[in-house]
Design a protein around this nucleic acid. Structure first.
Length: 227
DNA sequence: GTCTGATCATTT
DNA sequence: AAATGATCAGAC
């Protein structure tokens, strides 16, 4: 039943995603002969991995788009019954060293944000993880206006990193993009640039998309779908 | 430790 | 209630 699948076109990928819209996570897990985690705390990441398996994502833990041949990144996004995102969306790790001369277009996050397959997951709290429902997929690319803001956010934040101001960066900065801790726990440390240009140890950080931004994406898509 | 996949727990 | 800062699970 769990025959392997590799998408060779975005149309094929989208069709494969549409085929499981309306299905519960437990339903898809059963189809793939995968065991469900007992709860959503232990199951962090399970939703994404389940859809990766179904859709034939290949990038593994590389900092590259999931479907390398197609240049498409896969993102599941938890939404409530009003179709509002429940959580921000992690995109990629923030480079904290050897970043001199790094441009927006060269960055890992730029490549991932060029083309995303969004899969909304209906995730009301109190709903068991297996009862979450897979929604209709959205194939998205940033509009020119969105691209400008994303680049501005990235440049503002990465300027601070390059200037040794990582410890002054909070999640309050950035219009669409924000930087937050992204590590196993508070004792996981990595090297970064300090105030005097020296090497310091700090928490690993990640780039996240704010819910106000991902909500835009979902709203635009529902508008298109309703025409 | 460095990435991927995210959601949890606490503060605001 | 929503946002921020912290954490969970797994591959390598």
């Amino acid at each position: 039943m769990s025959d392997k699948f590799t998408p060779t076109s975005k149309e094929e990928l989208l069709a494969r995603a549409e085929a499981v819209a309306g299905l519960s996570l437990a339903g898809l897990a059963q189809r793939l002969d995968i065991a469900m985690p007992s709860n959503s705390t232990q199951g962090k990441g399970f939703v994404g991995q389940l859809l990766e398996l179904w859709l034939g994502a290949t990038a593994g833990s590389l900092p590259q788009p999931d479907f390398q041949q197609l240049g498409i990144e896969l993102k599941t996004i938890p939404i409530n019954a009003q179709a509002k995102p429940i959580e921000s969306t992690y995109v990629s790790i923030v480079p904290l060293r050897d970043i001199a001369g790094l441009s927006w277009e060269q960055s890992d996050i730029y490549k991932k944000l060029q083309h995303i397959l969004w899969i909304p997951i209906l995730t009301e709290k109190g709903l068991a993880i297996g009862e979450r429902i897979i929604g209709s997929p959205i194939l998205w690319q940033p509009s020119p206006q969105q691209a400008v803001i994303l680049q501005q956010d990235w440049e503002e934040l990465m300027d601070m990193v390059a200037m040794g101001e990582i410890e002054h960066i909070t999640a309050r900065l950035g219009t669409y993009l924000q930087i937050r801790p992204k590590g196993a726990n508070a004792s996981a440390l990595t090297q970064a640039i300090g105030p005097e240009g020296e090497s310091i140890m700090t928490l690993p950080r990640g780039f996240y998309l704010r819910t106000c931004f991902t909500q835009q994406i979902l709203m635009e898509a529902s508008h298109i779908n309703s025409i």
